[in-house]
Design a protein around this nucleic acid. Structure first.
Lengths: 138, 138
DNA sequence: TATTGTTATACTCTATAACTATA
DNA sequence: TATAGTTATAGAGTATAACAATA
């Protein structure tokens, strides 16, 4: 199978993903938590609906993720006064502190990848983006 | 997130994998079926144990996959006479015919990827292999 | 009537423990 | 005692339908 592009892409991605998971283990943080914290940090007051769309997580499953992050003290849910059906999501100070640590771990991870790729890094990323944009349905 | 190598790698891989799944849909074949058929074709008489190690599927889960492929008439299980605990796996004529069709679909898929990458293809694959070998635990 | 978040539920994948039959 | 395959089962992750509150 080693000769196939798709297979090699998958093997590389699995290796990177495992490394990524490993980098977050000390913080008891999974990749989905990191993405969610990052999105909320960049968009304070984000609604669950919008978070779910971005992360491609169905609403019922998001309920559990958000409840988990709230229970851990990373996020706050505030009833929106404009639309009382929805909640606005915000990071707590603890959530912000955790995200700062996770960002540092993530940066180390990315640094290792960049070092591995050397001067190919730009061309490599452009190729990845070309694959994504050509093959993705939208 | 668009700026991160790991994220872009994941997005590209997800796009390719979806395309791959789509290419096999007409044959009611999932990627794991294809890998298993291919491995058995290349190693006639393969034992489940060995198949599981290669595909990184735990033995109990492999039982279901093998039973499914047998039930569909793609493979045969023959009791080994040397070691009566184990089964030797072989493709049936139907399995071989299906694999031939799947190989053609896979080749189309790979062709599309090669076309997308153009003259970067070799360098791109070497970068993927470098990532894998440096980050993979073994 | 439609939308936000929720509950209940089901299906797939994956993981472990314990069993059987052979070695 | 160890190994190949099996069974039962449990845990993630992900999917749909239907509900309450609100728009």
């Amino acid at each position: 199978m080693q000769e196939y592009i798709g297979f090699r892409l998958r093997m590389a991605q699995v290796a990177v993903f495992r490394n990524f998971v490993e980098a977050f283990r000390p913080y008891d943080l999974r990749p989905v938590h990191y993405s969610a914290l990052k999105l909320i940090a960049l968009n304070p007051g984000l609604r669950q609906q919008r978070l779910g769309e971005t992360l491609e997580i169905k609403r019922p499953n998001l309920v559990l993720l958000v409840a988990d992050m709230k229970q851990r003290g990373w996020i706050e849910r505030r009833r929106s006064r404009l639309d009382k059906r929805s909640y606005a999501l915000h990071l707590t100070p603890a959530g912000k502190a955790l995200l700062a640590e996770a960002d540092a771990a993530h940066e180390q991870h990315e640094k290792r990848l960049r070092a591995l790729l050397g001067r190919d890094v730009t061309r490599f990323c452009l190729a990845l983006d070309r694959i994504r944009s050509e093959l993705a349905p939208r």
